[in-house]
């Protein structure tokens, strides 16, 4: 799949919701169970800038296409946060900058080491490490798309489901960028394939796991991916990863979710 960066930048925009009937949340409010998941998603979107940081400490940011993409991507994700915050706001849940800051402060130590570790790692192995980031980004975006799609299907809500569909469409474009970049870089280098496979197999965790309580993560995974349909979705995105050069046979999503004692049909 080719990715046209000029076309992407020129059509990049913040997701809109003003035209959606948010009054539907007054007549058919979301339940607490669902709001907890939306809250998690909202946090993850707002925290994208923290992932951006991890990407920028590697040499990739000097490349023109990467630079352009990162700028647009970061802003689109910020708007996903704003949109989901608007949904939560309609239910009396306020997400504000002070609270987001508190969440980031709470991560203090775990977090402080991350950029240091990555800039050392990233700079030691240089370009090959960029491949790891791109594959990692693709994995994150695939799982985000799956999560939005699942929530839209589960809820069938007149306002939430169309909003999630719009967000999901933007995430699909992000996936296209990351996957194209990853494929190109993995094809070129055996070391990149080795590093990426190692990182994905050993270290991949669901998006947001580093910024959330274990119980919240557990809630979201079970809410979205329990049952036969949930498992099917997870296997579908695992297939996407396995198609990347050198990633054959990996099942990172299924492996990560099995830690949560999912309610899945026996194989």
């Amino acid at each position: 799949m080719a990715f046209d960066i000029d076309q992407y930048t020129e059509t990049s925009e913040g997701v809109t919701w003003e035209d959606l009937d948010f009054g539907a949340f007054d007549t058919t409010p979301l339940g607490e169970y669902t709001l907890r998941t939306v809250r998690y998603m909202c946090n993850v979107e707002y925290h994208t800038v923290c992932y951006l940081r991890d990407l920028l400490v590697t040499p990739s940011h000097k490349e023109r296409d990467v630079n352009a993409f990162m700028t647009m991507w970061n802003r689109e994700e910020y708007w996903h946060g704003e949109a989901l915050a608007a949904v939560l706001g309609r239910h009396g849940i306020t997400v504000d900058y002070d609270e987001l800051k508190a969440a980031r402060v709470k991560l203090e130590w775990r977090d402080k080491l991350a950029p240091l570790r990555q800039s050392i790692m990233g700079n030691l192995v240089g370009d090959d490490f960029v491949a790891v980031h791109m594959a990692w980004g693709a994995a994150n975006e695939w799982s985000a798309t799956a999560a939005y799609r699942r929530l839209a299907t589960l809820e069938q809500h007149p306002a939430l489901s169309p909003l999630l569909k719009r967000i999901g469409q933007q995430e699909t474009r992000h996936t296209a960028f990351y996957a194209t970049q990853a494929r190109k870089r993995l094809e070129k280098s055996a070391l990149a394939r080795k590093l990426t496979r190692l990182a994905l197999a050993k270290a991949w965790r669901p998006v947001g796991s580093s910024i959330s309580d274990e119980e919240d993560l557990d809630h979201v995974m079970k809410h979205l991916f329990n049952g036969a349909d949930g498992l099917a979705e997870i296997r579908r995105i695992d297939t996407n990863i396995a198609k990347l050069p050198g990633m054959e046979g990996l099942t990172i999503f299924e492996t990560a979710l099995r830690r949560h004692e999912m309610d899945w049909p026996a194989a």
């Binding site: 800038v49 940081r53 700028t71 970061n74 802003r75 800051k101």
Partner: peptide, 20 residues
């Protein structure tokens, strides 16, 4: 972003749009 500035969500919120 490698400094404590990244934790300030108001500042990063600004910087996202500023970069754009």
């Amino acid at each position: 972003l490698v400094t404590p500035t990244h934790k300030d969500a108001r500042v990063t919120g600004f910087l996202v749009t500023w970069a754009y």
